[in-house]
Design a protein around this nucleic acid. Structure first.
Lengths: 149, 149
DNA sequence: TAATATTAGTTGCGATCGTAACTATTGTTT
DNA sequence: AAACAATAGTTACGATCGCAACTAATATTA
């Protein structure tokens, strides 16, 4: 009677894979930098964009709740990895940018990340990786469409 | 100088996609059944397996921490959606199975799930879905390998 | 321009989480 | 068999989370 296949259910599979893959990487940066997941994600968003961003932009970009972003920004600021600059025209906005120290940390962390990515890729295989990337790209387009509404 | 590409970093992409896709579905079962995410995942694992499972098996299957599983089991038991049965040979084990009520809830929820899956599929497209599935399958094999060690 | 709505970001608070320590049971070693 | 290790599951507790309410600033409307 049951025609539903959990093993084929996308949210379930995505979550399981994401959780597993993220945890192994989190163990590395937690041990070395005492960074939390939201902190790393915020740092990564800023570092990779190469420019300043607002908290809202960071949240939209990385699918994080705004309170998560707010707290991550606070603690990165405490570490002096990040600086706030008020927008002169619209003072509701805060432009967030990495400090030199933050840039340094980011570049160290991307070393870790690249190593992990390489490890994943070699286990997954180039062909499967390409398939995964294609599929994720499609999901990302759906995300944009739904967020746009 | 930076050669790291966050947009290509698998843990980041997977997490973002998983979070987004899961949240939209969670909104549905939260509203109708006041179910939490770990509760739904536990119910789904049990329902789809069609047999009884131990808490450890559920955790391994769905990548959930054992305390999460423990609490989800407790609250599903309170709802009378799930029953525990002690293993006669090894009393450390508890065999968990859905009650008739739990089965009923499961089948209603799989209706929701199927609808959501269909919506996703139509947005993503059959071809991309197949690619995603191939890629996730590869990740799942890596998970098994790493868990096995 | 006064009233109202909207938006960016923060915070109080109750709910949830995960680590570590725990109980209970079984397996292994000597 | 006594001592020790390992495993299933629970729980105390501090950390983290997200909802809702908040502040502050800007945009819109009457």
């Amino acid at each position: 009677m049951q025609t539903f296949d959990l093993e084929g259910f996308l949210p379930y599979r995505l979550n399981r894979a994401a959780e597993f893959v993220a945890l192994r990487f989190a163990a590395q940066y937690k041990a070395r930098y005492q960074l939390t997941r939201p902190e790393w994600r915020t740092l990564a968003a800023l570092g990779s964009s190469g420019r300043s961003m607002t908290a809202t932009e960071i949240g939209a970009h990385s699918s994080m709740h705004k309170t998560k972003v707010s707290r991550a920004v606070f603690s990165l600021e405490q570490r002096r990895w990040l600086q706030r600059r008020e927008d002169g025209r619209d003072r509701r906005f805060e432009h967030l940018a990495l400090t030199a120290q933050g840039q340094q940390a980011y570049s160290e962390l991307t070393e870790l990340a690249s190593g992990y990515q390489a490890e994943l890729c070699s286990m997954i295989g180039a062909k499967n990786l390409e398939a995964l990337s294609t599929g994720l790209g499609a999901v990302e387009r759906v995300m944009k469409k739904w967020k746009g509404l």
